[in-house]
Simulated scan of single mutants.
Amino acid sequence: MRTAPLLGTAGALRAARDAVRAVPGSGDAVLVVAAGTPGGGWEVSWVGDARALLWDGHTLLALTRDHTMAEELRAAGVDAGGTWENVVTTTVATAGPATAGHVRGPAGPGTLVLLSDGVHRSLDAGAIAAELAVPRGSSATARALVEAALAAGTRDNATAAVVPLPREWTVDPDGAVTVRIPEQRA
């Protein structure tokens, strides 16, 4: 979390990769990370099947493409799904410039929604949008997404983060990006 504002999201992925590789047998993971960029805007980097979505209050836009065998097969024109959805082709330990995904966007308005597969595989886009449309704070919305995934029967890890995009970013002299988010009222 401290790396992304200083080195960008690609730098945060590299730091996570190096940490995983430094401890043999420590396991592996998928990851999606978002950060503000100097001068305004945001960036997202990811590996695996963790997702980032952009919500503008009406429309939910997928920012990421799953790094799974099913997605690779679909990109090649093969109808795939089922167990292929669970075969991850890129992870934190294997992340590199050619294997990680990256996307950038402008400063707000809008909301970034970061989800693990336990949420996005249990809830369709309509259910996710319905939870985002309820006026409440970011933490409460993230909790509601996880609770909805659990109620839908997910058996995978269910994690959500909801990040309102500010209209203004500032850059400190040391290069750190400061986000000014107005107080939200539920």
Rank of each mutant, 00 (worst) to 15 (best):
G118I: 01
G101E: 05
V119R: 00
S122C: 07
I128K: 09
A107N: 12
V119I: 06
T111A: 02
R121E: 04
G108V: 12
A127F: 02
G126W: 04
I128F: 07
P135F: 14
G101R: 06
G105W: 00
G105H: 04
D124M: 00
A129E: 00
R121I: 05
G101L: 07
G96N: 13
S122L: 03
G110Q: 08
A133E: 08
P109F: 11
R121W: 02
P109V: 13
G96I: 05
L132F: 02
L132N: 02
P135C: 09
P97R: 13
P106H: 15
V134R: 12
A98H: 14
A107D: 10
T99E: 12
G108D: 12
L112C: 08
T99I: 06
A133T: 14
G101V: 04
V103E: 06
G101N: 09
V103R: 12
H120I: 00
G126L: 10
G96Q: 05
A133C: 09
E131I: 13
D117N: 12
P106L: 14
P97G: 15
G101A: 10
A127M: 05
H102C: 14
E131H: 14
G108W: 11
I128D: 09
D117V: 09
G101Q: 08
T99N: 05
T111R: 13
P106I: 14
L115K: 00
L114R: 08
P135Y: 15
G118C: 08
V103Y: 06
H102R: 15
R104I: 02
G110F: 04
D117H: 09
A130I: 08
T111L: 03
P106F: 15
L132C: 00
P97K: 07
A133M: 09
P97E: 14
A98E: 15
A125W: 12
S116C: 10
L132K: 02
T99F: 05
I128V: 15
G96M: 02
L115W: 03
L132H: 02
H102F: 14
A130W: 03
A107H: 13
A98R: 13
S122D: 03
I128T: 13
L112W: 02
A125M: 14
R104F: 00
V113E: 02
R104S: 11
D124R: 02
V113K: 03
S122K: 02
P109M: 11
P106R: 15
P97H: 12
A125C: 09
